[in-house]
Design a binder for these strands. Structure first.
Lengths: 93, 93
DNA sequence: CGTGTAAGGAATTCTGACACG
DNA sequence: CGTGTAAGGAATTCTGACACG
């Protein structure tokens, strides 16, 4: 029953994401060009985000406030994902 | 930690709900006038739905296909909510 | 580098109504 | 009763660019 996929289902448009995160649409779009966030697109090109994306955006905003560059944030997020991959594969053993 | 509120957070607009449920926007709006579903509104009047609303819409659609009237569906949904209320209050004792 | 803004166009959503039945 | 549709307007989103620094 794929039911708790709600967290990662991309269904929220950018205006709502802006409200939920407190970030401007400009910022949210920019972080995409910096490869920090990966929304889906509707057939007509409208960006769709998940709750997970929103959590991630809030983290990104926190890092930026501390003066961390998007480039560094990207590296850290990548590192973290690799750790998650390891956990998953080891839990499968 | 209000984290699993994702299911009931109203953030999805009607076009996406239509895709996810297979219902037409016309149908979704109509069920609102029949008091079967209660979206929130953005300041500018745009309807916002939750994943829970989507689950509910699918149920409604199933009932309608079976020939049940919206009036009956409304009664049943109300009954069910009252049962839930009872569970909640008794679990608090 | 990260973000604001004005610009013009395309896609989305809204309401009230006519239609069928 | 439940749903489709055309109508006109309002709100949303998109991209590329200029600006500051």
């Amino acid at each position: 029953m794929p039911n708790s996929d709600y967290r990662s289902k991309k269904v929220i448009s950018i205006g709502t994401v802006s409200e939920l995160t407190g970030l401007s649409e400009r910022q949210i779009r920019y972080y995409e060009t910096r490869k920090l966030i990966f929304p889906e697109r509707s057939k007509t090109g409208i960006r769709k985000y998940s709750f997970l994306d929103i959590e991630r955006l809030i983290e990104i905003a926190n890092h930026l406030e501390e003066g961390v560059w998007t480039q560094e944030i990207r590296k850290e997020l990548k590192r973290r994902e690799q750790l998650n991959m390891q956990e998953v594969s080891s839990s499968l053993l």
